[in-house]
Simulated assay, not measured.
Amino acid sequence: MCLGIPGELIEMATDDTDLALVSVAGVRRRVNVGLLTEDDELAVGDWVLIHVGFALAKIDEAEAQAALEMLHGLGPAYDQELADFTGSAVGREGL
Score class of each variant (00 low, 15 high):
residue 74 L to M: 11
residue 73 G to P: 03
residue 59 I to E: 00
residue 30 R to A: 00
residue 39 D to K: 14
residue 54 F to E: 10
residue 15 D to C: 00
residue 9 L to S: 03
residue 44 V to M: 03
residue 42 L to M: 04
residue 17 T to H: 11
residue 30 R to T: 04
residue 71 L to Q: 10
residue 92 R to E: 14
residue 85 F to H: 08
residue 18 D to M: 07
residue 2 C to H: 14
residue 54 F to H: 14
residue 48 V to T: 05
residue 86 T to M: 12
residue 72 H to T: 02
residue 48 V to K: 09
residue 20 A to P: 05
residue 33 V to D: 02
residue 31 V to D: 00
residue 18 D to T: 10
residue 29 R to W: 03
residue 12 M to F: 10
residue 48 V to E: 05
residue 68 L to E: 11
residue 90 V to K: 12
residue 65 Q to F: 01
residue 9 L to Q: 02
residue 94 G to A: 14
residue 94 G to E: 13
residue 80 Q to H: 10
residue 9 L to P: 03
residue 76 P to T: 13
residue 25 A to Y: 08
residue 56 L to Y: 14
residue 49 L to G: 04
residue 90 V to P: 01
residue 23 S to Y: 03
residue 82 L to W: 12
residue 17 T to N: 12
residue 37 T to G: 15
residue 92 R to P: 09
residue 6 P to D: 08
residue 31 V to Y: 05
residue 87 G to Y: 10
residue 47 W to S: 02
residue 71 L to M: 09
residue 5 I to E: 03
residue 93 E to Y: 14
residue 91 G to H: 07
residue 53 G to E: 03
residue 30 R to I: 03
residue 35 L to V: 06
residue 42 L to C: 04
residue 53 G to K: 11
residue 89 A to L: 14
residue 18 D to S: 13
residue 50 I to Q: 08
residue 8 E to I: 00
residue 78 Y to D: 06
residue 9 L to R: 01
residue 16 D to F: 06
residue 89 A to Q: 15
residue 26 G to K: 07
residue 19 L to P: 01
residue 94 G to M: 13
residue 53 G to S: 06
residue 54 F to I: 04
residue 16 D to T: 15
residue 88 S to G: 07
residue 11 E to C: 05
residue 70 M to N: 12
residue 69 E to T: 13
residue 73 G to L: 01
residue 32 N to F: 07
residue 11 E to V: 04
residue 46 D to W: 02
residue 33 V to R: 09
residue 70 M to S: 15
residue 66 A to M: 09
residue 75 G to D: 07
residue 33 V to L: 02
residue 70 M to F: 15
residue 88 S to P: 03
residue 42 L to R: 00
residue 48 V to I: 04
residue 14 T to Y: 12
residue 54 F to N: 15
residue 24 V to D: 07
residue 45 G to M: 03
residue 33 V to I: 15
residue 69 E to A: 14
residue 50 I to N: 07
residue 42 L to G: 02
residue 89 A to P: 12
residue 77 A to S: 09
residue 14 T to R: 15
residue 8 E to K: 15
residue 64 A to K: 10
residue 91 G to M: 05
residue 11 E to Q: 13
residue 78 Y to Q: 05
residue 42 L to T: 02
residue 4 G to E: 08
residue 33 V to Y: 07
residue 28 R to L: 00
residue 5 I to H: 11
residue 57 A to I: 02
residue 83 A to D: 11
residue 12 M to G: 06
residue 95 L to C: 13
residue 12 M to P: 06
residue 72 H to P: 00
residue 20 A to N: 01
residue 80 Q to T: 11
residue 29 R to A: 01
residue 80 Q to D: 04
residue 3 L to F: 05
residue 2 C to A: 13
residue 21 L to T: 12
residue 92 R to G: 13
residue 31 V to I: 11
residue 18 D to Y: 10
residue 94 G to V: 13
residue 67 A to K: 14
residue 56 L to F: 11
residue 91 G to R: 06
residue 55 A to K: 00
residue 71 L to H: 13
residue 81 E to P: 00
residue 66 A to H: 10
residue 71 L to G: 06
residue 69 E to H: 09
residue 22 V to L: 06
residue 92 R to L: 09
residue 34 G to E: 01
residue 3 L to A: 05
residue 90 V to I: 14
residue 68 L to G: 04
residue 58 K to E: 01
residue 45 G to E: 04
residue 35 L to E: 06
residue 22 V to R: 12
residue 32 N to K: 07
residue 68 L to I: 09
residue 20 A to Y: 05
residue 32 N to Q: 08
residue 80 Q to P: 01
residue 85 F to N: 04
residue 31 V to N: 03
residue 38 E to C: 07
residue 47 W to G: 00
residue 87 G to S: 14
residue 39 D to I: 13
